[in-house]
Design a protein around this nucleic acid. Sequence first.
DNA 1: ACCTGAACACCGTTCAAGT
DNA 2: ACCTGAACACCGTTCAAGT
Lengths: 215, 215
Amino acid sequence: MSYAVKAMPRPRSLTAEGIAAAALAVLDRHGTGGLTMRAVAQELGVSTMGLYRYVTDREELEGLVVELVLGAVDPAPPADGTWQERIAALVERVRAAVGAHPAVVPLTMTHRHRSPAILRWSESVAGLLTEAGTDDRQRVVALRGLLAYVIGAIQLEHLGPLAGAGTVAIAGLDPAEFPNLRATAQAARRVPADEEFRGGLALLLAGIGRRGAAT
Amino acid sequence: MSYAVKAMPRPRSLTAEGIAAAALAVLDRHGTGGLTMRAVAQELGVSTMGLYRYVTDREELEGLVVELVLGAVDPAPPADGTWQERIAALVERVRAAVGAHPAVVPLTMTHRHRSPAILRWSESVAGLLTEAGTDDRQRVVALRGLLAYVIGAIQLEHLGPLAGAGTVAIAGLDPAEFPNLRATAQAARRVPADEEFRGGLALLLAGIGRRGAAT
DNA sequence: ACCTGAACACCGTTCAAGT
DNA sequence: ACCTGAACACCGTTCAAGT
């Protein structure tokens, strides 16, 4: 049996999934700025340069975490409900998956496009839009609009203190100069984030349902 | 006249606007990754540390550029048109301003909240939403939805190759596995970015016009 | 008061070397 | 083949010093 031992190549000690999980752990623990090659290597109990045997780039590492997080999104459309409800459910799954790891938000932007999970998710949404009776052009606009909305809403929720402290500051603006904004911000403090997200989504879906919507 | 000369403090050589303009020039020329304290200082003909006399942080520097770009947005609502048309015009001004300097896109996210320009812009949009007959809660949802849409759409347009090369790649997907997505991507190649943006915005405005939109 | 250059503590990544 | 440590070319920022 020694023949095999002699010729046996040193087994790879890491896997793509393990690296992604380690990177996500670092991200969750130390935030976006804490994600460094050194930190991930340490998390894996490997020298910094050891990582480079499995990943060509920091770029590629980021892609792995993003895919790990987005891969948690179930792309299968819900079995029943109106097409509006089914699309809404799909969209909310993305928000939930990303919301569980806010530190990946800045990374999703640059890496989302390569994600097979989001590809399958998009296929489902496109299918439901077809079911809703949209033509090619309407489906293009609607799918892009939904994507833009999720992306923007997620960022609004997690980046920059517009959600928490920001609204409070705005609520204290000069009433003479910002009457409408001030009132809106004050009302905003009573609207939970979930409702806000669902409400905006409902507006978009209502527009899609109206069919056409002039360009 | 020598009394003044003796007591005269050394005049400041830089201004916030000058620094912002230099940073924007660097950004336009060398991209987001090229924006460094050293590069901006060089652009201004000053030592790297000279910058720190006017700016406490790289963070603050970024804020200055973002404000310079967003400050170009005219926050006054257009004189006439339906409220939908007037809101659409305001939203498109943001897209135009940011689109003129794509390299600031990643920065706008983290710094948008402090922008007085966007505050005035938001006041205008909130005012038009009031005019449209929305109540407090509806206005909150609509304003946030519009913000989310602009942010997301701008990023979709400028980040990650989903707009250009990405759609081409998707258009070549396995038709058996991705029938709807593939067809959509193929159609997408015939829809110019401007129309796509306006179309998605129109969906949102149509939803707002329908009033209410179930949560 | 304003500005500078050297230095420090980080990065990502290259390279030569170890098993 | 897989892994390591030293080294390089960058960052942002601190600090002591110059006018």
